[in-house]
Nucleic acid binder design. Structure first.
Length: 447
RNA sequence: GCGAAAUUGGUGAAGUGGUUAACACGCCGGAUUGUGGCUCCGGUAUGCAUGAGUUCGAUCCUCAUAUUUCGCCCCA
């Protein structure tokens, strides 16, 4: 048997419904925020990812899916969304668009050559936004608010927003050096991994799992102490604006993110629910004011975030949240003989084209089996065909809940169903179209 | 890249170095000759992850491979 590649998943059945729901919620909310959907290629020139990401980690060399195409071009399956979006922004000269800043969102699969574990796959789906061409802290606050609001709308409660500032490039550099200087004399008191991190990626020592209780790490200088005046004021604004949006958060100087291009605001949102596993960051992001220039575009400030939808769905499961997913069909058409079958086929098409979800029998089961099938499909109505009745243009329609049965003229069938079956509810933001309040404590705790 | 555990039908699972691998659920059919969900009866073939080895004989023991799960590294 040929099996799926390691770290990949088939999404189908009830799980696929969850994905569709989440995707619909994202699309609906992004429309309200007026972010434009963008779809970029799933593979790009390998250079694109090498340039943006920098050299402090072994991401690029070890953890991407690289291949050479038939034209000898070096290609890489995208490991994240930002690089492609920024490339597209530059290539399509969006910095010249009439409406600025440019607000974009994407939702697609990413590929990382990693060892799978809970919450970590080789093919993953990320939803993210990028805002290019503005550096006011109001943008930072808005970008952070998007995943927070999505999690809330999905019903997730046990989440925590961590935020930090790395400052501008100057502050960041100063901090890095200070950190190396601080750790160097104590290096032998730290774990092996940390000893290696010291020169390669000293910021990562701060969230080491082995040494996290070590006094040396606890007393290490924080990014915040190394912010210059301007960076500090900027960060204070972001905090203030988050407060205005009612977004609970914690300033956590250990949040540093792994990549070189981040500056100023960085944030991560983690799932706090019991049993989530060690990969508990649902999403995160930050400001990358230097990236566009690095990739060959004009100097353009930018900020974005991405959230792994697989982890979001895992969090929904761990918090035992049931999404309001519509299930069942409107009508199941039962038939037995060939003449009825032809009518069933035609009626199914007719009703479908008139907006009803319809199933009929495909496997030649007996009437008893068809009733069972209709129940399994959670059909609201049963349409029972009978050759004799059809001659008089009559069909039997049965409400599968009340079990009441009526004989009606075929010409009235659509009218009848229109009367009895309520319209599919369009996707609502919030529940049952009620007003949504996202502030703490006002939620539906008591419902 | 490193370490640990797991893998039995459509599903949940029990079990053994030796003719037909339990039980349950599900599904299909019948009792009920065109109105079901309960009950009873019958059916559900080739199925013990894959490949090699040990053995008279392997689903069981050994090794390898694959996948899954958990942790480390890394985390975009």
């Amino acid at each position: 048997m040929i099996t799926k590649p390691k770290g990949c998943h088939d999404i189908y059945g009830a799980e696929a419904k969850k994905w569709q729901y989440v995707n619909q919620l994202i699309d609906a909310l992004m429309e309200k925020y007026n972010y434009q959907y963008i779809r970029t290629p799933i593979f790009e020139s390998t250079d694109l990812f090498h340039r943006g990401v920098g050299s402090t980690s072994d991401i690029v060399t070890k953890e991407t899916y690289d291949f050479v195409d038939r034209g000898d071009r070096k290609m890489t399956l995208r490991p994240e969304g930002t690089a492609g979006v920024v490339r597209s922004y530059i290539e399509n000269k969006m910095y010249g668009d009439a409406t600025q800043p440019v607000k974009l969102y994407y939702n697609g699969t990413m590929y990382r050559y990693e060892r799978p574990q809970a919450g970590r796959d080789r093919e993953l789906t990320q939803f993210g936004v990028e805002v290019l061409g503005g550096d006011d802290p109001i943008i930072d606050a808005e970008v952070i608010s998007i995943p927070v609001n999505i999690y809330k709308m999905l019903g997730l409660k046990q989440i925590k927003v961590n935020i930090n500032s790395l400052g501008d490039m100057e502050s960041r550099k100063a901090y890095r050096e200070a950190l190396i200087k601080y750790f160097e004399p104590h290096i032998h008191e730290l774990c092996e991994d940390c000893q290696e991190r010291l020169q390669k990626n000293p910021l990562r020592i701060l969230d080491c799992k082995v040494d996290c209780d070590n006094e040396i790490i606890k007393n290490a200088p924080t990014t915040l102490e190394y912010l210059n005046q301007e960076s500090k004021e900027r960060f204070d604004k972001v905090i203030e604006y988050l407060g205005a949006l009612g977004i609970e958060h914690e300033v956590n100087p250990k949040i540093v993110r792994g990549l070189d291009y981040y500056c100023h605001t960085v944030f991560e949102i983690e799932a706090k629910v019991e049993g989530f596993g060690s990969q508990n960051v649902l999403g995160g992001g930050g400001r990358y004011d230097g990236l566009t220039e690095e990739l060959g575009g004009p100097k353009t400030p930018g900020i974005g975030f991405a959230t792994g939808l697989g982890r979001v769905i895992l969090a929904l499961e761990k918090e035992e949240i049931k999404l309001p997913i519509k299930e069942g069909i409107d009508v199941f058409i039962l038939y037995v003989n060939e003449d009825e079958k032809l009518n069933a086929m035609y009626l199914a098409q007719e009703l479908r084209m008139n907006g009803f979800s319809v199933e009929t029998e495909y496997l030649g089961r007996g009437l008893k089996g068809q009733f069972k099938q209709a129940d399994r499909l959670k059909s609201k109505y049963l349409l029972i065909l009978n050759s004799e009745e059809l001659k008089d243009n009559i069909v039997t329609i049965k409400n599968n809940k009340t079990k009441e049965e009526e004989k009606i003229d075929l010409d009235y069938l659509i009218y009848y169903l229109d009367e009895h079956i309520e319209e599919d509810e369009p996707f609502h933001l919030g529940h049952e179209g009620e007003e949504v309040h996202l502030e703490e404590g006002e939620d539906d705790e008591e419902d």
